[in-house]
Amino acid sequence: MAMRDRHKRPSRGVLALLLLASFTIITLDARGGEDSPVEPVRSAAGEVFGPVEKVTATVVRPFQAVPELFTTTRALRGEVDRLEAENATLRGELATSEVDRARADELDGLLRSSADTGHALVPSRVIAHGPAQSFTRTVTIDAGTSSGVRPDMTVLNNDGLVGRVVRADRSTATVLLIIDRDSVVGGRLGSNMEVGFLRGRGGIEEQGRLDLDLVDGAVTPEAGDVLVTWGSEGGKPYVAGVPVGTVTSIFSSPRELSKRAVIEPFADFSALDLVGVVVPADTRGDRAVIRAGDPGTAGEER
């Protein structure tokens, strides 16, 4: 074959063709926006990769316990001392039961948050995370249109707001986290009901902090103030009253008319596992929907 010849200069034709193809795809996708011609291809890829990611996540889930084992060791030092004489098998069992218990707690929390907010939730697991090299903060969850998940639905966990669904395939969905740079959430301060716009900073080293720009420049938020979602029209993409985070510091400059507050989110975005997608109460799907009280009233905004 020609390409095996070590003295031959590689052909530029293939390179030019592939570069052109890449530029074409970029242009099509960048120009098209919501109804770009790449979108059907993307959802087809989602149908293929989604189930594979699901299986992989199930296979690697036990290894998730490994870092957790190290972090809980300190907290469980007393117990570990007592168990030191026990063999490795028993210690492994302890680690996995610890994970199961944490997971049960999370589910309890999700049930509670459903009761607190009055929304119907589809429980689902985070199965894949977008790499930091891609500079977007997105995750894949293992519930899709077959479970009633649609684009522009609110995603939360037992700590607080997580993000919104941007794309839903049959068995998986992509969630844009609120710490992503493209994410803007309407927020309301708990103490004085003032509203503002919450933007993600996408940051990695900043522990995923958020910036809040208040609409009313005369209002000064206080550190420790709790921020909840303001809620969008019809609960899409964000339902009202979901806790987001607390104010940690406030900046103001003469250059800017409004004040900027830094928000520390309640949700731990580096350790997302069980999340709930807010769905209409009459959702029927292939998995159980967590409902608060009477199904007739659940799902509506309070």
């Binding site: 590689p10 592939l18 890449s22 795809i25 989604g50 894949a128 500079f135 998986t172």
Partner: peptide, 28 residues
């Protein structure tokens, strides 16, 4: 060699661009 690798690179890159949870402009 370069031709084969460029083709593999194109396919692998497209897979990263399209597989969930990717949300950036495809083709990058």
């Amino acid at each position: 060699g370069p031709e084969f690798a460029a083709v593999i690179g194109f396919l692998a890159g497209l897979a990263i661009d399209l597989a969930p949870p990717a949300d950036h402009i495809a083709g990058r």
